[in-house]
């Protein structure tokens, strides 16, 4: 166990945000889920008792009959904002006094950094480079992430859970978002920071970063397993496999989505276009874990090989 190596990575000033996220994200997730559960209990209670539902103020927050519904921004909000600004300033000051921003040697095109890492917030994309070619990992998938995020409000037809924390009323969307945010984005960043060493090789935490390490890794392409050798054959075979993946994954997702009562109700509210777009984004999202599995378990690199691009 090389504690020194761990400390080297953790204490690198530029990695502080990732270490901070390690605590912040679980904390805020817990904070939100706790409120969500409290609201869920209230919802269950009100669903069971329609009479109470008519008169209840419907919040889990403190409530008294005579309270005004609104308060003045000055001072009730501005003092909080002012306090927040002061606290953030203090944090920044302490952080800036104790830790120096990194400054490496002057830029030198003849001396490649190893490992050459992107800024920490793009390490997820760099990690994706292991599983996809640069045009996918660096351009197409990031664009799809942005478009997919922007499309969320137009795909989510569930009218419940607007303006309050809840888990039960939005199981599906919260699961999907948390999977994307925590597993596909943050976990990839953690891997990129803590696991990937020289040559972008996999080093377990505590393993020394060996710069002369060589990994004997023979990757195969999926068509090779079926002894397909012609370019045409590979192209057509890949297209069929990818199409089949989208078909099967879509069908399985459809089973999960439209199986239960409430989901089915929301599903019926969606237009064909909304549903197909949602399916497309979900299936594409699952492409990453799928490629990770077939890469690590079966050493398969490409599924679809054409003269112009490989997936």
């Amino acid at each position: 166990m090389d504690w020194h190596q761990i400390w080297d990575i953790v204490s690198t000033p530029d990695n502080i945000p990732i270490v901070a996220l390690f605590f912040l994200v679980p904390f805020y997730t817990w904070y939100a889920f706790r409120q969500g559960r409290a609201n869920d209990r209230l919802i269950a209670q009100l669903e069971a008792d329609p009479e109470a539902a008519k008169t209840h103020h419907r919040k889990t927050l403190p409530f008294k009959e005579g309270w005004t519904r609104e308060v003045h921004v000055w001072p009730y909000l501005l003092r909080i904002e002012f306090l927040a600004a002061i606290i953030v300033t203090v944090i920044l000051m302490v952080w800036s006094i104790t830790l120096n921003a990194p400054l490496e040697e002057p830029a030198n095109p003849n001396l490649t950094m190893n490992p050459a890492k992107a800024p920490w917030y793009f390490l997820g994309l760099q990690e994706m480079l292991v599983y996809f070619d640069p045009w996918m990992a660096g351009v197409v998938l990031p664009s799809l992430i942005l478009v997919g995020l922007a499309a969320i409000p137009f795909m989510d037809e569930n009218p419940l859970g607007s303006g309050y924390y809840t888990l039960k009323q939005r199981k599906w969307s919260i699961t999907a978002f948390c999977f994307g945010f925590m597993v596909l984005w943050l976990a990839m960043i953690f891997i990129g920071t803590f696991i990937r060493g020289p040559g972008w090789m996999w080093f377990w935490p505590g393993q020394t970063w060996d710069h002369s390490r060589v990994i004997f890794e023979v990757n195969r392409d999926l068509p090779d397993l079926f002894h397909i050798t012609s370019a045409w054959g590979k192209g057509i075979f890949g297209a069929v496999v990818v199409a089949a993946y989208y078909g099967i994954a879509g069908w399985l997702l459809h089973k999960v989505i439209a199986r239960k009562g409430f989901n089915q109700r929301i599903y019926k509210r969606m237009s064909m276009l909304q549903y197909l777009i949602m399916q497309f984004f979900l299936i594409t999202m699952l492409l990453l874990p799928l490629k990770m599995i077939i890469r690590h378990a079966f050493r398969i690199k490409y599924i679809w090989i054409t003269p112009w691009f490989n997936i």
């Binding site: 400054l103 040697e105 001396l111 050459a116 890492k117 070619d133 640069p134 045009w135 351009v139």
Partner: peptide, 22 residues
């Protein structure tokens, strides 16, 4: 902007992606 190794190689990696834009 600091024009050091860190920034240079990060941007080199980043713009290699742009080179691969479909």
């Amino acid at each position: 902007l600091p024009d050091d190794q860190l920034g240079f190689w990060a941007v080199t990696v980043g713009t290699t992606m742009a080179m691969n834009t479909p």
